[in-house]
Nucleic acid binder design. Structure first.
Length: 493
RNA sequence: GGCAUCGUGGCCGAGUGGCUAGGCACAGCUCUGCAAAAGCUUGUACAGCGGUUCGAAUCCGCUCGAUGCCUCCA
C-alpha cells in the first residue's frame, strides 16, 4: 500500500484562504505548476526560497509515493518593462545594455539559475518549459479569448477586457480584490491610450521596429504578454484543470489572478484546485532590493564575500535555516539567525551519523513508531517543516542518551529510527551532510585519527602542552575534537 | 490611499480557546588535566487597549507597528 493512502495531507489554499484536505484529481497522481524565474539577472536568495519551498513539497509528495509531474517554467521573454511605455521587454532591454543577443542573456542567467539551485540540492522539475518555446500555444489561447469576446485588438496589440470578464466571472477572487475598488483607487498613470481600462492587461504586444525579440502573429509582429506563458504551458502539460499551482506571494496579484482570468476566458474552466503561495524572505527585516543594497546573492553567501554576514554559510545550512520556518511565513535572514541554524544543523547531522554505531538492547526507551507518525503528522499539516525539525531534535536527544548508555533501543527500532531519520532529513527536507560529501574525507579521516592518537599519547604522559597544541590548532582549522567515554571523535565544520 | 498577511521569551521561529514546540544564546550541574562535545536542570513569552467566555496569547473590535501587493519582481 503506498504511503499516500496512509497519510492525509492538508494544504493552505490561497483561493479559499483555508487549510484543506488535499485530494488529487486522479488518485496517486499530482500535477503541479510553479512559476519559475525571469532570466534577466542572477537569481537572488529570495527567489531561491520559493523554489526551495516547492522543492520540499515536491519531495514530500514523491516520498508519499505520488507520481508527480512538476512543471516549472523559465521566463525568457515577454515580461513588459512597463506597460505604459513602448513595449520593450526586460530581456531585450538588458540585451541592448550589454550589447548581447537576447538569447545570450537568457542562456547566461539560466545557467546561473540551474547552478545555484543545484547547490541548494533541488531536484530538477519533470518539465522545465520556456516561454519562447511556446509562442504558438500562446497565440492559440489569444485567439480563443478573442473568439469568446473577452479581449480586443488595438494597433497590433491585444488586451484582455477585465471589465467585460468581470461581468460574468469573478476577477479578483484569488487576491481578495474587487474590481470596483480597483477602479476607484486607480493611480494617475501615464498614457494608457490603447487600453479601455487601466485594469486591462496585454495578451499580445506589438513590437516596435527596433525591438529584437519578435514573432509573427495574426495581429502583426510582436511578443506575448506577461501572464500568458504560464496559462499556455500549464494547460499544455497539466491540462485545463490541474491540482496545484504555486509561486511566490508577490505573484498572487496580478500574475496569478490574470492566469485564472485567461484560463476561464479561454476554456470556461477554473484551472487550479489548490493555489499555494510561498512567502517572502526579508534581509535584516527589510525587503531585498538591489537599489538599496539590501540584497544578497547565493554565491556571496557561500563564499562569505559580502558586507552583511560575518562568515560564509554553505547551501545546506541556508536550506536548513529556511526549513526552520513555515513556507507561508515571512522569514527574516540575519547573521545571528544563520549562526544559530548552523549549530543546530551540525547537531542534527552528527546525531544522524551516530545512529549506526548505537548499541542495541532487548528493550527500547524510545517509541520509534509513535515518533515516526509524529513526523508524518507534521508534514501532513501543510508541510510544517519547523514542527518536523522539532521532532527530529527529539530523536537527536534520544540518540545521544542511547550513545551515552543512559537509554536503550532494540535492533528493530534502531533500523526504523535510521530509516525515518534518513527519509525526512535527506529525502524530504533535501539536506546534505556536507562534512561527508567531499572526496578527500577518507584521507582526512586517517590524518586526523593519527593526530588524535598522538594527542592521547601526550595526554597519557601528562604532556598537556603538546596535547592542547594539537587540539587548538585543529580547532583553528575547523576540526573539532570530541572526547567521549569510548575515545575521541571529530567533526569538520 | 486601497487590498492582504503578520506582530510570540535575549535572538530565530512553531502553535493554539484550558494540558505553556524546537533551535541558538545565557546560568548551574555531570563529565574532563583544563576545555570543547554530550547530557541534565532553571528561565512561564505571546504589540497596546477594550469586548466575548467559566477560561484567550489563541475569537471579535479599535489603536500602533511591520511586511507584501496595488508598476516588473519568488
Amino acid at each position: 500500500m503506498p504511503l499516500y493512502e496512509q497519510q492525509t495531507v492538508k494544504v493552505t489554499n490561497s483561493l479559499t484562504g483555508r487549510k484543506e484536505t488535499f485530494n488529487p484529481l486522479k488518485k496517486g497522481y499530482i500535477g503541479m505548476y510553479v512559476c519559475g524565474p525571469t532570466v534577466y539577472s542572477n537569481v537572488h536568495l529570495g527567489n531561491c526560497r520559493t523554489f526551495i519551498s516547492f522543492d520540499m513539497i515536491f519531495r514530500y509528495f514523491k516520498h508519499l509515493g505520488f507520481k508527480v509531474r512538476y512543471v516549472r517554467n523559465i521566463t525568457d521573454a515577454g515580461h513588459l518593462e512597463n506597460d505604459a511605455d513602448d513595449g520593450e521587454d526586460k530581456i531585450a532591454k538588458k540585451a541592448k545594455l550589454e550589447q548581447l543577443e537576447p538569447m545570450e542573456v537568457v542562456q547566461r542567467y539560466t545557467v546561473d539559475f540551474h547552478d545555484t539551485l543545484k547547490k541548494f540540492n533541488l531536484l530538477p522539475p519533470s518539465i522545465e518549459p520556456t516561454a519562447t518555446g511556446h509562442i504558438i500555444e500562446q497565440i492559440e489561447i489569444i485567439k480563443e479569448i478573442l473568439g469568446k469576446g473577452f479581449a480586443y485588438e488595438k494597433n497590433g496589440s491585444v488586451y484582455f477586457d477585465v471589465v467585460k470578464f468581470n461581468a460574468s466571472h469573478e476577477y479578483g477572487k484569488l487576491s481578495g480584490r474587487k474590481l470596483e475598488d480597483m477602479i476607484a483607487n486607480t493611480r494617475e498613470l501615464a498614457a494608457q491610450d490603447e487600453k479601455k481600462n487601466p485594469q486591462d492587461f496585454a495578451l499580445w504586444k506589438k513590437a516596435e521596429p527596433q525591438h529584437i525579440m519578435r514573432w509573427p502573429s495574426p495581429w502583426g509582429d510582436g511578443f506575448p504578454g506577461w501572464h500568458l506563458e504560464c496559462t499556455a504551458m500549464s494547460t499544455k502539460y497539466l491540462g485545463e484543470n490541474f491540482d496545484i499551482h504555486g509561486g511566490g506571494m508577490d505573484l498572487k496579484f496580478p500574475h496569478h489572478e490574470c492566469e485564472i482570468a485567461q484560463a476561464e476566458a479561454s476554456n470556461g474552466k477554473s484551472p487550479v484546485n489548490y493555489w499555494l503561495h510561498a512567502n517572502m524572505l526579508t534581509l535584516n527585516g527589510k525587503k531585498m532590493s538591489k537599489s538599496t543594497g539590501n540584497n544578497i546573492y547565493p554565491s556571496e553567501m557561500f563564499s562569505g564575500k559580502n558586507a552583511i554576514l560575518s562568515k560564509a554559510f554553505p547551501p545546506s545550512v541556508v536550506r536548513f535555516f529556511m526549513m526552520q520556518a513555515h513556507y507561508t511565513s515571512i522569514l527574516d535572514l540575519s547573521d545571528s539567525a544563520l549562526l544559530a541554524s548552523e549549530k543546530g544543523y551540525h547537531k542534527l547531522m552528527e546525531a544522524y551519523s551516530a545512529i549506526s554505531q548505537l548499541p542495541t538492547g532487548p528493550t527500547s526507551d524510545f517509541d520509534v513508531k509513535a515518533w515516526t507518525q509524529q513526523c508524518y503528522n507534521a508534514m501532513n499539516d501543510d508541510f510544517n517543516t519547523p514542527i518536523l525539525i522539532a521532532h527530529l531534535f527529539d530523536a537527536v536527544k534520544r540518540i545521544n542518551l542511547i550513545k551515552e548508555g543512559k537509554e536503550t533501543i532494540t535492533e528493530a527500532d534502531k533500523n526504523e529510527l535510521s530509516n525515518t531519520f534518513n527519509s525526512f532529513v535527506f529525502d524530504v527536507l533535501g539536506l546534505e551532510d556536507q562534512s561527508t560529501s567531499d572526496g578527500n574525507s577518507q584521507t582526512m579521516e586517517g590524518v586526523v585519527n593519527l593526530l588524535i592518537d598522538l594527542r592521547n599519547q601526550a595526554r597519557a604522559n601528562k604532556d598537556f602542552e603538546t596535547s592542547d597544541k594539537i587540539r587548538d590548532e585543529l580547532t583553528a582549522l575547523g576540526i573539532q575534537l570530541k572526547d567521549g567515554k569510548d575515545g575521541t571523535t571529530f567533526s569538520i565544520n
